[in-house]
Computed example of a mutant assay.
Amino acid sequence: MPSAIKDIRVQPLDHGPKSNVDFGASVHGIDLNNLTDADFDIIHEALHKHKLLVFKEQPQMLTPQNQYGLTRRFDPDETTGGFAHGVDPFLTSHNGVDIFGLPFRPAVPVQPQVHILGRGEVPENHYQFPPGFKVKGIDHREFHLPPHMSAEEREAGKSRFYQWHFDGSLYNIPPPRVGCLLAVRTPKGPDVRVQWDDGTGTEMAIAPGATAMVAGSRALELLTPELREVVYNSKIEYAPHCFEWMSTAHSTRLGHSIETEGLEKPLDKLKPWTKDKICTYPMVWKNPVTGEDSLQIHGQGAFKLFLKSSPDGEETVIDDLGEVRAYMHKLMRPVFEPNNIYAHKHEEQDVILWYNRALWHSITEFPESYGPRIMHQCNVAASDHPVAARPIPS
């Protein structure tokens, strides 16, 4: 008998008539644990078209090995297979098995490019982790500018965007092409209300533990024509070891930039770095399959701006951090309105895959009483650094 023909369906997500979100699709009929070359061809085309794919109805939980295999296939020229943020430090050991990573991002021993994110206790006998092992959750009180939300407000369902970003170390290592999240355990409870806390009074109801996303193409579209020309011709230099550099500073309450208080870790106190490994990226990146352009900028890591209003125009260098951040705010803030944001509600055993070079995302907080949020995340350093959507003369 001939083999059965798969019923594979890629359906664009319905965001409703009041939404400006134009990305995302659900995928049915592909078993990611038994991925074929034909399946991957469909995924590759669909991901670049829709930028976010949600894989529904997985027969079994995606294994870390297969999650890594799926993620790595998007970059066949990448040979090291390394984690996008570099080598993990030693964390703990159990039954002779060393576990690497950070308390909020431990690596899965059987596939160390896959990390556990979220908050709370991992399931019993979970990939060689010790009994009762808990993942330390993110907490805006440890990073955001005061005043913070009280414990009572948080338990009542108030939330924040923790950090708007695309994945990448922003130093030496090229940012991943794709990101992949598997929902192992999800919090259970009513929607939370995300607070902008930037003086505008803006808020948004989302599912607890949702991953919020915006499209860089929409951010680009919202700029004035004059600003759009600038970003097409301009570059950002990111701080060396920028996450260590910003670790002693405060994020804005919206999670898109750093407050200029002089609290950044001095450059001579960072772990060793060299100028040749500093990342300087164009502001606008092109989708290699669809040709769509996206404003891809990381407001928190920005250290210096090289601004030009035309290819042959005079370059203005901005190296005052306050001015850098004010300019980044001008570019980023317009897209942060509820009708431009998709907050993905994770359902256990579902997998989401996104094009990391076209979307920005942020984790969101939820009440501790809602239970654990345990996610497997995989992103792999790319073989190439991003190039400008239009050539920028040196």
Rank of each mutant, 00 (worst) to 15 (best):
L353S: 04
N33R: 12
T71P: 04
F74N: 14
I363T: 05
P372S: 01
G137I: 10
V135E: 02
T252I: 04
P393L: 14
E152Y: 00
K345C: 02
H126R: 02
A151D: 10
Y370F: 14
D320L: 01
R373E: 10
V387A: 06
T252F: 06
E78G: 13
I392S: 12
S234V: 04
L53C: 02
A358P: 05
W285P: 13
H344T: 08
E323Q: 14
E264Q: 13
Q113V: 10
A151F: 12
V231G: 11
A38S: 08
A4K: 14
H385C: 03
F143N: 07
T80G: 13
W360I: 06
E259M: 06
D39I: 00
V21D: 14
G301N: 04
D312T: 15
S247D: 12
S369R: 08
N172H: 07
F104N: 05
S217I: 00
P147F: 12
Q300N: 05
I173T: 03
A302G: 07
R253S: 01
K235P: 00
E152A: 14
F100W: 15
T211M: 09
H28G: 00
W273D: 11
I278H: 13
R357W: 15
W196R: 11
E152L: 01
V135W: 04
F133M: 06
T79V: 15
S26L: 02
W360T: 03
P372G: 03
F336T: 02
R333S: 02
W196C: 10
E347P: 00
C180P: 00
E264V: 11
R9E: 10
I30L: 07
R141T: 03
T260A: 06
V54F: 09
S294H: 15
Q128E: 07
G86K: 07
D37T: 06
R357K: 14
P338R: 02
S309F: 05
D41Q: 13
P112L: 07
E226G: 01
H85L: 15
N20R: 15
R325H: 13
H115T: 09
R73E: 01
G101D: 10
G96W: 04
M204I: 11
N95W: 15
V194N: 03
M149W: 08
C242L: 06
